[in-house]
Simulated scan of single mutants.
Amino acid sequence: MSAAPAPPVSEPAWSLSRSAIWLWVTEGIVGTLVYGAIVTVAVLLVPASVGGPVPVLRWLLPVLVGVYAVVAIGIRPWVRYRVHRWEVTAETVHTLTGWLTRTWTLVPVARIQTVDVTRGVLQQLYGLASVAVLTASSQGTVRVPHLEVAVAERVAEDLARRAEQVRDEAT
């Protein structure tokens, strides 16, 4: 008689800050402007009289930049917000990330070595911060991105305190 399989871990309870959507929209706008500038330069550098596939590229490349803009600005931020989840329980930190490739990460509090809070330039603009949970495992760091600053600071302090308590109990 074989043992019953362990019940699956539930999906993490918390989503990221809604401001993350606008951060991702801003990243999509910047990316579109960069790609648009590259395509514009490429199209302007190729003489109109050149034959072959070049005339098709003169209209195809801007269309592709337009498709990229729709996805990067209008679709991807909303999907990412819906699929990125996180939770801190008494025993673990759970993250669920990725909108095409889903990555589920569970970090036991007992394995935590360091907890960092970082704020990139765009995160500062939108009042966000990321929590990085570092372990000694080969997987390295687990990140909970784009939390409100106060939430990120509370989570980091709580995790650091609990990791220290677990280390103290082990000695």
Score class of each variant (00 low, 15 high):
S2N: 11
P5T: 00
A6C: 03
A6E: 14
P8R: 04
E11V: 13
W14S: 13
W14G: 14
V25E: 00
V30A: 06
V34R: 00
G36E: 05
V41M: 02
V41A: 12
A42T: 07
V43H: 07
S49A: 13
V50S: 13
G51E: 14
V54C: 04
V54I: 07
V56T: 10
L61H: 00
P62N: 01
V65L: 05
G66A: 12
V70F: 11
I75F: 04
P77T: 00
V79L: 10
W86H: 07
W86V: 10
T89V: 12
E91F: 11
G98P: 09
G98A: 00
W99M: 11
T103R: 09
W104T: 13
W104C: 03
L106P: 12
A110M: 10
A110I: 03
T114S: 08
T114H: 11
Q124P: 04
Q124H: 07
A129I: 07
V133D: 08
L134H: 15
T135W: 07
A136R: 03
G140C: 08
R143V: 15
L147T: 04
V149K: 04
V149M: 01
A150V: 03
E153Y: 10
V155T: 11
D158T: 15
L159V: 04
R162K: 05
E164Y: 08
V166F: 08
R167C: 01
D168L: 15
T171A: 15
